[in-house]
Design a binder for these strands. Structure first.
Lengths: 185, 185
DNA sequence: TCCTTCTATGCAACTCGTTGCATAGACAAG
DNA sequence: CTTGTCTATGCAACGAGTTGCATAGAAGGA
């Protein structure tokens, strides 16, 4: 299970509430991990109970109060131990690929619209990543020298960018294949 | 949920037992979907109960009998309906990326071994995909003309190959970054 | 004034996925 | 002759993840 560890990393980078974590999981952390607010609140509860993180009630004006979490010593130890354990290389799960192979038993041309929709989504995500890269790492506003944390964030972001570019190129290939098959039927 | 649909596609390509499906999920279908035999047996039971698939007891010599499943008309209809529904573009879940960002709060150099292990695993997988591609699609043993199903299988395999190549290039980038950070500490 | 949106937290019920264990016949290696 | 591996199926328990719903104050627009 890595959600706990992803939360620990995120809280080490910047303490915050469950709500804030949920938004980060829609953005920067979301480049490589996803979670809903339900999962996050539940796991935060458990981690607090286990003493991995500390809570601080923060009153706010013009909005509901929030609970700000930060990593406690035992949490840091848990993260450190996990970092030294080996993990299994990921296996992919690509629903669209199931559809593509399934299209052999239906109408391949019917998938064209769907593939184009995915192209659009991945293209948007790529643009979002590239904007983040310019803002934080390569643009004129970016710091001249990066510390270790920033270097590591950048290399993970480069991974996200490479993934989206690869996916877009593959979807082009898929579209060309579907068009090639379409008229023949 | 797409496991049911992945099983339907696999059974349409070739009827088989739960055990055979489990092995396919370690290989060709496993390029884009994974499942353990437990999940497969459970889902097969449910699909059979719902009338999506038919069973046939097949006695075998020198091995236990098996239940061979094949897709029934309602199953085909379910698959067809699903193929015409839109799905959400996948979001990635990359545990290694969590570790890489977490390394900022530990020793980045300690991750080098782990990244090299992943490189090895992805390199093996790529070799396996390329061997499959030569055998089934581009080699001298491959059929001269491909039907629609084979074309679609090939484009999915090309996706797997592109994914592994992209991942290997990114892991090189990660390693270079870790080496760069190592001595500075 | 009402409706929607944003911040902020949470319960309950459910499905999906993993892990450990169990059975059982046949075969191969030591 | 015992141990291990391969085929083949399955139960039980648990943990992870999703979906629907609920609450509640404040801001902003119709």
């Amino acid at each position: 299970m890595a959600l706990e560890h992803a939360i620990l990393v995120s809280l080490l980078e910047q303490p915050g509430s469950g709500y804030e974590l949920a938004r980060r999981f829609d953005r920067s952390i979301g480049y490589f991990w996803t979670a809903t607010h339900q999962q996050i609140y539940r796991v935060l509860k458990r981690m607090e109970g286990d003493g991995w993180i500390d809570v601080r009630e923060v009153p706010q004006q013009a909005r509901p109060d929030k609970k700000e979490y930060s990593v406690a010593a035992p949490g840091r130890a848990v993260l450190s131990a996990w970092l030294h354990e080996p993990i299994e290389p990921e296996s992919v799960r690509h629903e669209l690929a199931v559809k593509i192979r399934g299209a052999a038993f239906d109408d391949p041309a019917a998938l064209i619209r769907e593939v184009e929709r995915h192209q659009q989504a991945h293209s948007d995500r790529l643009a979002h990543y590239l904007a983040g890269e310019r803002r934080d790492f390569t643009g004129p506003e970016a710091p001249a020298a990066l510390d270790a944390g920033q270097e590591l964030q950048h290399v993970v972001l480069r991974g996200g960018i490479a993934y989206e570019q690869m996916t877009l190129a593959w979807l082009d290939d898929v579209l060309a294949t579907l068009h090639r098959l379409g008229p023949e039927r």
